[in-house]
Every structure is written in C-alpha cells, then in structure tokens.
C-alpha cells in the first residue's frame, strides 16, 4: 500500500475542479464561479462508496475484523441522522492504519486479545459471540471508569490545565488496558464517521466550496443574537 493510498476521485469531480481552476486562472477575467460547478463539486464529492471501491483486508485477522466491525457498530450505530461508523468505512480505515505502523497495530492486536480474554472470563465466549447486553455491559464498565477519572480531575481543581496523561490515569487498574484500547477504538470509529460523506452530511457542514462573494445569512445572525445576552 502506498503511503498516501489516495482514492481515485470520481472523474466528474476532477473535471469540476479543473473547471474551477481554469476559471480562476484565466488572466484578467473576473473569477465568477459558476454556481452549478460549485454544486457539482459537493455532489460528486459526496459519493464515497463509489470512490472507495473494493477494499482488501491487510492487517487484521478475519476474527479481529469481525470484532472491530461489531465494536464500531456499537460505538457509532446508525440512526435517523445517518448510517453507522461501519457504513462510513471505519473497519477499512482501522485495518489500513494498523497495516501502516507498529504502534497502532500493537494497540489493536493487543486490545482485541485483551477484550476476548476478558469476555471469556466473564461469559466463556469471545466478544463477537456474546450477546449485545453482555457487550454493552463491558463498554458501560469502560465508560464508568472514564467518568470516575473525569470526576476526579474536575474535583482536583486543575481545570483547563489538566494534562493528557491525567485523563489516561484510570481509576481501576484491572480494566485499565481495556479502557485504553476502548478509547482508541472509539477515536478511530468517530474519526472514520465524521471524515466520511455520511458524517459530513450528518453534521451539516456545507463548506469546501468556491464562491465569488462571501455572505452570512441574516437568519443565522438573528437566531444567535436573539439567544445571546445582546438581544436588545
């Protein structure tokens, strides 16, 4: 896999961008952006599925792939606002990153093994074979440890000066390794989701365009002003 593993953009999008460049580079003429082109860029760019094509598993074993899939589904499930992290390519993303370097590969191989060992101890089954209730119970335990840690930091009065390490100093050493891995799993699932067209649409990000003027809609200004201390 090459370093950047650049996905082939849809030809229509490339063509649209070429036309933008051609317009703005035309010496001396006004850089009027054809609104249809701007729209086109957005529409073409939003088709991740076609762009991704077939992905071949690289680093994770089949079992690990299944486990990561299940975890990503639980962490970022589909809802009315959009698909799941799995739909957004989280598993491929994690596998690709793990194939690219030791730190992440070790974190995932190790974390997944720890999780299965923990679940076998609790329920005599691997994570993927446990019931949804059993899987969620493990995640609930992780979150409880995180919350207790956050609470301790808040109570310590360090406020905004808390350091990254403080947030990683888990309050229950028996689950520490699992909480640390869960945090990685969640970070990558969340990143896969919000960097995908699904996540971008869910949030409602409407930028990355090219326009000949910049305007702020009146209704946005009025909305915030009315809710602000400056409403009068």
């Amino acid at each position: 896999m090459s370093e950047l593993t650049q996905i082939q953009p849809a030809v229509s999008r490339r063509e649209a961008l070429r036309r933008i460049a051609a317009t703005v580079f035309a010496a001396g003429v006004a850089a009027e952006m054809n609104p249809a082109d701007a729209q086109h860029v957005h529409a073409a760019a939003a088709s991740l599925k076609g762009a991704l094509g077939e992905y071949e598993r690289k680093e994770l074993s089949e079992h690990e792939w299944k486990t990561v899939t299940r975890m990503a589904e639980l962490i970022m499930p589909a809802d009315s606002g959009g698909g799941s992290a799995v739909d957004a390519g989280a598993v491929e993303f994690i596998d690709l990153l793990c194939s690219g370097g030791e730190p992440l590969a070790y974190i995932f191989h190790g974390g997944l093994s720890w999780t299965d060992a923990e679940m076998r101890q609790r329920h005599s089954k691997d994570f993927v074979d446990c019931s949804e209730a059993q899987q969620k119970a493990l995640f609930d335990d992780f979150v409880a440890v995180e919350r207790a840690t956050d609470k301790r930091i808040a109570a310590s009065g360090v406020g905004p000066y808390a350091r990254f390490q403080d947030y990683q100093a888990w309050d229950r050493s028996d689950l520490g390794a699992g909480v640390g891995f869960f945090d990685w799993m969640r970070k990558l699932a969340v990143d896969a989701y919000y960097t995908s067209p699904i996540g971008i649409k869910d949030l409602g990000y409407v930028g990355n365009g090219a326009f000949s003027s910049y305007e702020v809609p009146r209704k946005a200004i009025d909305y915030a002003m009315k809710r602000s201390p400056f409403k009068s």
């Binding site: 950047l4 996905i7 491929e92 990153l97 992440l104 990143d191």
Partner: peptide, 12 residues
C-alpha cells in the same frame, strides 16, 4: 476521505 488514512497519515 480522499485519502484512505483520512488525514491521520500513514499508520495513524
């Protein structure tokens, strides 16, 4: 998403 690594760079 134009990049497989989504901006996290090689190996994250």
């Amino acid at each position: 998403y134009d990049y497989g690594h989504r901006g996290a760079d090689k190996g994250g």
